[in-house]
């Protein structure tokens, strides 16, 4: 499997207490691909992402990343292995400056090459001494992705990357995601179908905790015809 898929999820089930949210989900992420999961509110997209990133312990099933079983591993170990999760709430450390936020990530990963961050997000260089609390939603998203790409991760899991962002920033993100996917796989979840159509090479449609369709046809992805599955 190691060469074909960087992440292999098999029969994953997750729950919050007694409330089961994810039902027997199986999926694969290939190296350097752009994959999206789409679905309505409450479909279980975020829960699935959290289960893969070990932020939530699945009730059963397995998540294998680069040949290593992730279920039961703490989230900080998973992050160190190169599977990074970016939350949807655009939360950066508010009392720290952009520089300090990046330093934290560099210290954890040993990667101090900030040029690659500034290559994708030149604006962060201008904002380097501004505190997280004074960044806009778009700037926070840049910083969160910038932090995540330090340490050369193999997979980025990004929850609702366009939520609350201005259209011009969404356009920038499309370009950025295409650039980033030259080095790592990107899996996003969200409801912004026009964004998904512009970035995804493959799509899973999710409904009521189950994957109901896999769309690989480029034409179908471009014309949003997968929306019938939602």
């Amino acid at each position: 499997m190691g060469t074909a898929n960087i992440v292999e999820v098999k029969n994953l089930n997750s729950a919050y207490g007694q409330s089961k949210v994810i039902f027997d989900v199986s999926l694969q992420i290939k190296p350097k691909e752009r994959l999206s999961i789409v679905g309505r509110n409450g479909a279980g997209k975020t829960t699935l992402l959290k289960s893969i990133a070990s932020l939530l312990n699945p009730t059963s099933g397995s998540v294998v990343y680069d040949g290593i079983e992730l279920v039961g591993k703490p989230s900080y170990d998973v992050a160190r292995m190169g599977l990074k999760y970016i939350d949807q709430d655009k939360h950066v450390f508010l009392d720290l400056t952009v520089r300090e936020n990046l330093e934290l990530s560099s210290y954890a990963t040993g990667d101090y090459d900030w040029d690659k961050v500034f290559k994708h997000f030149p604006k962060l260089k201008i904002l380097i001494d501004r505190k997280g609390a004074f960044l806009s939603g778009g700037e926070r998203q840049m910083l969160m992705i910038g932090r995540a790409i330090l340490g050369d991760p193999k997979v980025l899991l990004i929850d609702e990357p366009t939520e609350g962002l201005a259209p011009s920033i969404v356009d920038d993100l499309v370009t950025t995601f295409h650039e980033l996917s030259k080095d790592c796989a990107i899996m996003t979840v969200g409801q912004n179908l026009s964004f998904v159509s512009r970035i995804a090479e493959r799509i899973y449609a999710m409904k009521e905790g189950k994957l109901v369709a896999e769309i690989t046809d480029e034409a179908k992805i471009k014309d949003n015809s997968y929306s019938c599955y939602l």
């Binding site: 703490p74 992050a79 939350d87 934290l104 340490g151």
Partner: peptide
């Protein structure tokens, strides 16, 4: 110190610090 910054981050959002690879 980075340690001081991580302490502040624990207060701010402990889970986010784990995402970055820190054992809080």
């Amino acid at each position: 110190s980075v340690f001081g910054a991580t302490c502040l981050c624990v207060k701010d959002n402990e889970q986010k610090l784990r995402f970055l690879g820190y054992k809080t």
